[in-house]
Design a protein around this nucleic acid. Structure first.
Lengths: 348, 348
DNA sequence: CAACCTATGTAACACGTGTTAGTAAGCTGC
DNA sequence: GCAGCTTACTAACACGTGTTACATAGGTTG
């Protein structure tokens, strides 16, 4: 029982042949006589030999694996159903094309540092950091990549969603219903956010809301804003705070909560129920994403649907075709749509 | 702009030094003079050089990556929140220890075939196939591994959950409430299941139910059984069928639905609401897993809690310590607990 | 001034594979 | 009987790295 450390040279020595013969015995059977082939296989079995994955990858120059560069640790990322859906989409393509999926969290809080430790043929880069060192590094290395949930960048292929249009649509919808006192439940951009403001999808969504407000003669200054990590519990807490009235601003509580994530909207509804405020009779709530749960949720959630799974599929497809050098898909934007369900109504 | 194909030899040639010097310049700066070091770094920058990940891995003999061998394709697996939670737990440890996580679905419907294509230091093997070729293959290769959701196996470290005890407890609870006509919403073991019956956790849960039934003088023949893929929609469909009365058996409809997964229980409640049957007044429903959603679900779901995240953490911890050769944790079983909420009551 | 040490750089090895070019033996054909 | 072909196998190269053992040159020490 040799402990699996056998190399092809060992097998060759044991079978009394050259190392090449061993390779042929495994990968090119007709290239060698059946007699010696069986002898080699027997020796391999006896020694517990299996070709080294790394050795083959190095020689072949391909890993059959695509990496997903994530903006946060795995422990936090997978808490959000959004990423599960996204990975599901990418995973569907991987299944089909025979690729594995390497989840690559930041190393020592640095996405950049994680890159050299991932043995992959290409990367899907999620929620790019403000500093764009990653893009430079990846082009430098000549590794194909596709950007997701980032700012549009010249020469960098990406798959995005019309966040601005979606946010504008849902905000406009609430305003048209007659709501004027809005609360926006936004996403905490994390500690690494630059001072210069939002980035990527978050920036676009805020811009969309501003668009709609402008149509009604309002500005962002007229809405209450909270920024929290994307957790149901955090959505709950923030909503309690938002509704109980900020003593500083002193205004009346909002009649609608516009959450930038379905998960946060769930928490908002929890909070309102806790406060004995009826949804949607007294306060309307909207989400963003349209997770599967949102149609089962009570009240069924009014939200902006973005095709998350499709986004994942497309990102993986673009990447794989780039890896194969088939075709360059420079950029693609997927549409969103407002899904009106039961969590919204005219203000009382 | 060389397209990132530069090797350390190229840099050496460009800087007029040996390849070793290049390596030292990057990994062992004090081993070389500052002057040449800067010359080398400049040359590297000009050529767009970055050390090959594969090359380093091959030399170092370590990948800093752990694999997760999955029983189904990524597209299906990630549909189930159970796996998201599990990966989250494993991911927490990976974040902490600086490992990446390689999701390895079956290749051409074979888990075995997928093994040689994963460049990892060790595997977490999930829901092992009936045929145990994987264990043999992994021991043969000398790759450390930890089993999850499998049958207990001599000499193979594993992290399990007391499925039998949990199932027994929830079944007994329903029986003690007075329910006698039970429906069991079970998990479809997939196409690759052997004829000889259930395996792993599913077998243990069924055994636990049988235990409880026996205490009340009943057998598995006295319950209605449906086996479906773990999807809310499938749970819905199956429950509709179960409640509308199997014309063959002709008996009265069940008063309690015991689902072997929370996801299926959600679907069951959906179906009952659709049929205008009150939960729990007319029919009780129980789940298994205690996903986060189950405490938000209305009615709040009575279920068996299993520590999924802890399971993931522990599996990763055991594996990593095995990789480092620190200590061998042969086997561990985590406890379950019955969480009684609002979806169960005495039969009408 | 010889002996020693230190700083700097290099040649060579090891990690493990797949594949191309090339050699010896055996067979066929005329 | 020899050119020519096929078969079965091997030597050598390529993939790209880190590291150990060795060679210089220069400076320090007694």
């Amino acid at each position: 029982m040799p402990s699996g450390k056998a190399t092809s040279s060992d097998v060759a020595a044991a079978a009394g042949v050259s190392r090449s013969a061993v390779s042929f015995a495994f990968n090119n059977p007709q290239r060698i006589s059946v007699a010696t082939r069986e002898r080699i296989l027997a020796a391999a079995e006896a020694l517990g030999y299996a070709p080294s994955t790394l050795g083959r990858m190095l020689q072949a120059g391909t890993t059959n694996s695509i990496g997903v560069l994530l903006p946060q640790g795995l422990g936090r990322i997978l808490e959000n159903p959004y990423y599960s859906r996204f990975l599901m989409g990418a995973g569907q393509v991987c299944d089909q094309e025979g690729y594995t999926l390497l989840l690559t969290p930041p190393l020592q809080d640095s996405v950049l540092r994680a890159i050299p430790y991932a043995a992959v043929d290409g990367f899907v880069v999620c929620g790019l950091e403000a500093d764009r060192g990653e893009v430079a590094e990846l082009t430098r290395r000549g590794i194909p990549f596709v950007l997701i949930d980032s700012d549009r960048l010249e020469g960098a292929p990406s798959v995005e969603v019309d966040d601005r249009g979606g946010a504008r649509e849902v905000a406009r919808y609430l305003l048209e219903l007659g709501h004027r006192r809005l609360a926006v439940l936004s996403i905490d951009p994390g500690a690494e956010v630059p001072v210069r403001g939002y980035r990527g999808p978050l920036a676009r969504r805020m811009a969309g809301i501003a668009d709609a407000l402008a149509e009604f003669g309002l500005t962002m200054a007229d809405v209450r804003l909270a920024e929290v990590p994307v957790t149901r519990a955090e959505g709950y807490r923030a909503t309690i705070a938002l509704m109980s009235g900020d003593p500083m601003s002193g205004g009346e509580p909002p009649t609608a909560v516009l959450a930038l994530s379905d998960v946060l909207a769930y928490g908002a509804v929890d909070a309102l129920q806790e406060l004995a405020i009826k949804v949607p009779a007294e306060v309307s709530v909207t989400g963003f994403d349209d997770l599967a749960e949102s149609s089962w949720f009570r009240p069924r959630l009014t939200t902006v649907r973005q095709p998350i799974v499709t986004k994942g599929r497309m990102a993986a497809e673009f990447l794989i075709s780039a890896i194969r050098g088939e075709e360059q898909h420079p950029h693609h934007t997927l549409g969103t749509s407002l899904i009106v369900r039961e969590s919204t109504a005219k203000p009382a």
